[in-house]
Simulated assay, not measured.
Amino acid sequence: MKKTLLLVLFTLTTVFAAQAQTRFGVKVGANYSGFEGDRADNIGYERRFGFHAGVMANFPVVDDFFSIKPEILYSQKGAKLDDLEEIKFRLGYIDVPVLAQINAGPLYFEAGPQVSFRIQDKIEFDNSSIDIDSDDLKRTILGYAAGIGLASTPLGLSIGVRYNSDISTLYDSDDDANFRNGVFMLSLGYMFPSR
């Protein structure tokens, strides 16, 4: 199954690259993340700031109007509690969104599915950091992303805002809290070659 999926992805990438000018780029930005779900609201989790950084590609499908934009990003997520002392839940993921992008002049709209792979899980309090017992946390999470932005095609620069959220919960067990990550992102990007 994995070999078939890789073959399909390779074929699609080759077709897109042969038919259009494929562009690659980098992006970096700020995250404003929190836990969502009924129990998360009751406990009183607050959002915390983090960052994201990674690479992206743009495969035009219909001239400059419609394209497919896959990305690979390292993204800091989590939340914090401020009741007695500040406790920060720091979760790190590799996010792989595959977005459909519609360009309307300098304005663009994007949306699509996302898969996230957890690579870090820590709790910080009293100026110390401890690893979470992560056996109950899902290693892979499915989600979605949607955003809007401005792009200068001749310069290759873009600025965008995006919201992404998990569809599946953070925990494997139904007995655990139904927390999900929800992240607002502000990104700066550069696509090369600029045209």
Rank of each mutant, 00 (worst) to 15 (best):
M1Q: 08
M1P: 08
K2L: 15
K3S: 09
K3D: 07
T4D: 12
T4N: 10
L5E: 10
L7T: 14
L7N: 08
V8C: 13
V8W: 12
L12A: 14
T13E: 04
F16M: 05
A17D: 10
Q19C: 12
A20Q: 13
Q21D: 06
T22E: 06
R23K: 15
G25P: 04
V26Q: 12
V28Q: 06
A30G: 03
A30M: 03
N31V: 03
Y32L: 10
Y32S: 05
S33P: 09
G34H: 09
G34V: 01
E36Y: 08
G37V: 08
G37L: 07
D38W: 07
A40Q: 12
A40V: 12
G44F: 01
R47W: 01
G50Y: 07
G54D: 11
G54C: 11
N58K: 06
F59Y: 11
F59I: 02
P60C: 10
V62N: 08
D64H: 15
F65R: 12
F65L: 14
F66K: 05
I68C: 09
I68A: 10
P70W: 00
I72P: 02
Y74H: 02
Y74G: 03
S75K: 01
Q76F: 09
Q76N: 08
K80M: 10
L81F: 13
L81A: 10
L81M: 11
L81N: 07
D83W: 04
D83F: 08
L84E: 12
E85H: 04
E86K: 07
E86R: 11
K88A: 06
K88W: 03
K88G: 02
Y93K: 02
Y93F: 08
D95Q: 03
D95W: 00
P97H: 04
P97W: 03
V98F: 03
Q101K: 13
I102F: 11
N103S: 06
P106H: 14
P106V: 14
Y108S: 00
Y108K: 00
E110P: 01
A111W: 00
P113M: 09
Q120R: 14
K122F: 07
I123M: 05
F125W: 08
N127I: 09
S129F: 12
S129H: 12
D131I: 13
S134H: 14
D136N: 15
R139I: 08
R139H: 11
T140N: 13
L142C: 01
L142A: 04
G143P: 01
G149N: 05
G149K: 05
L150D: 14
L150F: 15
L155F: 12
G156L: 06
G156D: 07
G156Q: 05
S158V: 02
G160Y: 08
V161R: 02
N164L: 00
S165H: 04
D166T: 00
T169V: 04
D172K: 15
D174E: 15
D174I: 05
V183S: 04
V183K: 01
F184K: 00
M185V: 07
M185E: 12
M185K: 10
L186N: 09
S187F: 07
L188D: 02
Y190Q: 11
M191D: 13
P193L: 08
S194C: 14
S194F: 15
R195L: 12
